[in-house]
Design a protein around this nucleic acid. Structure first.
Length: 597
RNA sequence: GGUUCGGUAGCUCAGCUGGAUAGAGCAACAGCCUUCUAAGCUGUGGGUCAUGGGUUCGAAUCCCAUCCGGAUCACCA
């Protein structure tokens, strides 16, 4: 049994035997002792005074004596005001070290055959522009969440819904036909998603020009929009697409293929992937069927103009449009259709949508609608809502050209990491290929960690010039720490030492060693908390603390390689577990660790 | 305006279901490379936790109000 539980039980027992009072186990105020105080666990006795009817110090002392007598793991205790600090024995911590050094998957739960299936949707790009900084946050969060869910014993299906239909796609297609027919990614040497994105921008520019000239002729903004020939052509194209016009569909397929190829490269660079990809072009009709079925069952209603609505006033919300008066689908309809297809494909127990917080309302509504339509997981769906990524000068605006492109950003990071490595002379003596792999790992580590360490709910500021660092609370710092751990074992091997993970009892531990052990023992709780709170940031901040603590330990108490001693073995075991824990925590974040750097 | 999320050091962020003297990193300054990797370590300075009330042994944390900022309130996606 975990030591926390044992202490709590004994506290309950102490209250009973000393004061004849009852307290529920969960209500025992047990905490991890502050760093600047002596001890491992602390019982806060203030809330217990009502039961003991004695002064804080007195209560704490009496409880301390009781606990020390009853639990051999407790070596001593001290009382400061109403705080009872319990110090666990070195032997207890050594036994913890021995236990966890033996378990390869310490902190991770195995996935049972009947484990719940969690589906996580993330990324969800439009096919008319390349991925940008906001998508990076989305992808990294989604990917990390899937690993955290997996580590907590869930079956996980990573999914992506690609928005591949609609007027915006037609704009790119039209621009290509008008001003770029014959141009391909091959002919331009451009990534497909960027090429298509360029045509989308081109459409927008020409559309603006057209509007301007229309307005110059005295039309109002509204009239100009109505009169625009370009927009009319785009709408026509959408109709043709919906009608299955072979030429339009062919072009649509071709251009989408370009985009997907480009996306695949970006996903690969980011290190994320999916188990199942859905396309809105396949789901929007299903959604319409679902809504019509709901209409037949009188869950929804039809207005005079033919549009279909859901009345959500009983749930404290308003009315929501599900089908336009012309019978076509809206965003919500598509999400319902996608849900249906997913439900048919997988036995989903829990659904997680990683989508920005500007869609909080949408998912509130979706949850209610899916529930009404009979999806078991509808009510409990999780909208993992994250904040925007802002630049130092404000928000990213495509019009103002302040969008940070994902591919560019990654390239920039890699370049910086390369320059930095060269400057420090870190990769001298490595083949170009090895060096390139290492600074790539570092660059991505920096980017990923920077984004994941922030609480996802908050909007965050990202300065491409200055924010990304390789020192301090960063990915590379943690990677560096891992590399140093590996170096310890390389050194040992060079010296021909036999590295045993056997831990002998009776050793005395330094404060740093004790702190490290305490942190390592806490890892499973961190993994579990991260899952319950949907927070990769929890893991990120944990692994930084661990790395920092290890660096201090490493610096303060060098390992004496030459003597084969129990102390050295204990430190080897400690270092080994630290390395493993860093690797596992970083795995949860989707960040690679280099063997050396 | 309604709903909702946020406001912690010059900057970027931690601070769990209320607990001890509010913590890291960056930036600034001062030290440490004959010792397992200096992408490291040590030290110094830096705070009215937006503001005002309330709840209690105890509040950055919970409640109310106010101020400031974001998001949202489409037959857009």
């Amino acid at each position: 049994m975990a030591i926390e539980q044992q202490i709590k039980q004994k506290v309950v027992q102490a209250l009973k035997e000393l004061y004849g009072a009852d307290l529920e186990l969960e209500k025992v105020p047990l905490e991890i002792t502050r760093k600047d105080q002596k001890g491992d666990f602390t019982v806060v006795v203030f809330p217990l005074l009502k039961l003991s009817r004695k002064k804080p110090e007195e209560t704490a002392s009496e409880m301390g004596s009781f606990l020390k007598d009853q639990l051999p793991a407790i070596a001593s205790f001290n009382v400061i005001k109403g705080f009872l600090n319990l110090e666990l024995s070195h032997d207890y911590w050594l036994s913890v070290l021995e236990t966890i050094s033996e378990k390869e998957t310490y902190g991770f739960k195995p996935v049972a055959d009947d484990a719940p299936l969690v589906m996580i949707e993330y990324s969800s790009p439009n096919t008319n522009k390349p991925l940008h900084l906001g998508h990076i946050r989305n992808n990294l969060l989604g990917y990390s969440l899937s690993r955290i869910a997996h580590a907590n014993g869930n079956k996980v299906v990573k999914t992506n819904i690609v928005n591949d239909r609609g007027i915006h796609i037609c704009k790119s297609m039209l621009a290509w036909k008008k001003w770029g027919e014959g141009v391909t990614p091959e002919s331009t040497g451009k990534k497909g998603d960027h090429l298509v994105g360029d045509f989308y921008v081109l459409f927008d520019q020409n559309y603006k020009k057209e509007l301007a000239s229309l307005k110059a002729r005295g039309l109002s903004e509204e009239e100009a929009v109505k009169e625009s020939a370009l927009m009319a052509e785009a709408r026509e194209m959408l109709l043709a697409w919906e009608a299955g016009d072979p030429a339009v569909v062919e072009l649509w397929k071709t251009m989408n293929e370009w985009v997907y190829k480009g996306f695949d490269e970006s996903y690969k660079a980011l290190g994320v992937d999916f188990d199942k990809i859905y396309y809105e072009s396949q789901t929007y009709k299903v959604g319409r069927e679902m809504v019509l079925e709901g209409l037949r069952q009188e869950r929804f209603y039809r207005r005079e103009d033919g549009s279909v609505w859901a009345d959500l006033s009983k749930d404290g919300l308003d009315e929501k449009l599900l089908l336009r008066s012309d019978g076509t689908s809206v965003y919500m309809t598509q999400d319902i259709g996608t849900a249906k297809l997913r439900y048919d494909d997988f036995n989903i127990d829990k659904m997680v949508y990683v989508v920005g917080n500007e869609q909080d309302y949408h998912f509130k509504v979706l949850s209610i609608l899916l529930d009404r339509l009979g999806f078991d997981w509808g009510k409990s769906l999780v909208h993992f809502s994250y904040g925007m990524v802002e630049l130092p000068h404000g928000k990213m605006k495509s019009r103002e050209g302040t969008v940070v492109d994902a591919d560019d950003l990654i390239q920039e990071m890699v370049d910086t990491a390369r320059d930095m490595s060269r400057e420090l002379g870190k990769l001298d003596g490595y083949s170009d290929e090895d060096a390139a792999r290492i600074y790539r790992t570092i660059a991505l580590g920096a980017l990923k960690y920077f984004i994941l360490k922030v609480d996802p709910r908050k909007s965050m500021t990202f300065d491409p010039q200055e924010s990304i660092d390789f020192n301090g609370n960063t990915g590379p710092f943690i990677q560096y720490t891992f590399a140093r751990v590996q170096s310890v074992f390389r050194k040992a091997k060079e010296l021909g030492l036999e590295v045993t993970m056997k831990v002998e009892s009776g050793l005395s531990l330094t404060e740093k060693e004790n702190n490290l052990l305490r942190m390592l023992a806490n890892f499973p709780k961190v993994v579990q908390d991260a899952s319950e709170a949907f927070s990769p940031a929890l893991v990120a901040n944990y692994v930084f603390d661990l790395a920092k603590e290890f660096n201090q330990f490493y610096h303060e108490s060098p390992i004496a390689y030459e003597e084969d001693s129990a102390v050295r073995n204990m430190r080897f075991a400690l270092s080994s577990v630290v390395g493993r824990t860093i690797r596992q925590a970083m795995w949860l974040l989707g960040i690679d660790v280099p063997e050396r750097m």
